[in-house]
Amino acid sequence: MPERLDNHLKERRTELGLTQAELAELIGVTRKTVNTIENQVFVPSTILALKLARALDMPVEELFFISSG
């Protein structure tokens, strides 16, 4: 079965009451990038994943995980 990188980005972001634009501004990317990561269209680099984890105050391995299928 093919593996893919899944994430809890949307859940965590809404939990903290942040919009995509606010999160994007926090990590220095555009809203489009946050949106594509949330929708699993784009796999972020390690640097960006770590920045997201820091901004959302969550361990990176909890924010991102591998799911199959």
Binding site: G28, V29, T30, K32, T33, T36, I37, F42, P44, S45, L48
Partner: peptide, 10 residues
Amino acid sequence: DLLDDENTRA
């Protein structure tokens, strides 16, 4: 710089 972020470069 913002317009050329990671997703755009990809």
